[in-house]
Design a protein around this nucleic acid. Structure first.
Lengths: 212, 212
DNA sequence: TAGATTGTTAATCGATTAACAATC
DNA sequence: TAGATTGTTAATCGATTAACAATC
């Protein structure tokens, strides 16, 4: 299979979300044209995107909602279980641990880690908060696949490096830094402050154009 | 000023972050070439991006770090105060309220809102949690500019519509839905589950290529 | 069979990179 | 002045849209 472009991959979860909604509305089939109207994109883009992965549709019919939903789910790796732990059990770490939908989608959060004694022992929907000193043994013994980093950037960087040595190959990074880890390690960043700045950029832009 | 492309805008916060680090290292000037090495982008892209907004550099010298930092800050609207409230005072809402750096960057979080009586009255760094029934009067009386939506999608959609009627023009949306609000309303989305799916896409992709 | 709609090729558009003249 | 490095134009690359033949 050819390398799929980043732009296409980043649209897959949105297709998945819309197909889930269609499913819940008991809609059986949908054409690229109809879907394009719902999603506010071009029908051409939908067909091009899906055809990167082979033909999911049928001429004259469109796409079967349930089938396409499942196929995209497989592409997104949602047909297998992913073991994840959370490092940093503050509000953000707890928010992720307690978000039920992750579990429904095959994510198995089994523990949180923190150095703060007041948090250690606390119960969440994603398991107990453990002392961070047990982190490295834990990930090795439990075949953890993904580590979510919800802590400040300096410890995040150090801990990530040690986790790479323990064999971790995928990070969901909320720390405000680009983790400096080697190229074959997967890092998906969520930079909340950068998102907020994009919002205020657009506010300023709008204000400037009004005062022109 | 011509319309700046989305791709350029989305890179500005990252420039801003790197310039802040340079500043803290007391580095006075930097060339596009040096910065490109640090940031892992091309020097050409940096110069092109910055020139969308006018000449911030000087031939033979490069860019003055402090000056460029401030100018990008202005572009991002960080030179003015932004009043924000948070709707949904669960872990995620509290995480945002308690994140100190927002305040340093000119964001003024003055209250959270929730319908849950157990949360109402609770104190955070972003003010008290108030009963959601006071939300609409509050935003009107306090000239709130941005509303962060950290609650499930159904109430998020309804509340957003009512807030638009109250004059709110910018949403920072964490609900798993594309807010259906009119075109001149600014919506910046943070879809955590979509981010996590992009991560697992890359994990599957990698596993598939190993088993080929 | 006729109509609908995909899969896919071709055309367009936009973003990134390269090159270099301008200038500090 | 000579060297360095920007600002900016031109070339390349990639992504999106349009068009249409294939086919259900």
């Amino acid at each position: 299979m050819n390398k799929i472009s980043k732009a296409v991959v980043s649209r897959l979860p949105r297709y998945y979300r819309y197909l889930d909604e269609l499913r819940q509305e008991n809609i059986e089939r949908i054409s690229s044209k109809e879907l394009s109207k719902r999603m506010n994109v071009t029908a051409s883009q939908i067909r091009q995107d899906l055809n990167n992965f082979g033909g999911f549709g049928q001429q004259g019919y469109g796409y079967n909602v349930q089938y396409l939903y499942e196929e995209i789910g497989k592409l997104l790796g949602l047909n297998v279980t992913h073991k994840m732990v959370i490092v940093g059990a503050g509000n953000l770490g707890q928010a992720i641990a307690n978000y039920g939908n992750f579990r429904n989608r095959g994510f198995e959060i089994t523990a949180l880690f923190d150095k703060n004694p007041e948090l250690i022992g606390k119960d969440t929907a994603g398991g107990k908060v453990l002392d961070i000193k047990y982190l490295y043994d834990y990930v090795k013994e439990n075949n953890v696949e993904i580590v979510a980093l919800t802590l400040p950037k300096e410890p995040a960087q150090k801990i990530a490096e040690k986790l790479v040595e323990c064999g971790i190959k995928a990070f969901w990074n909320f720390a405000h830094t680009d983790l400096g880890v080697s190229g074959d390690i997967i890092v998906e960043n969520v930079h909340l402050s950068e998102s907020l700045m994009k919002l205020t950029y657009r506010i300023s832009e709008k204000n400037n154009s009004l005062n022109k």
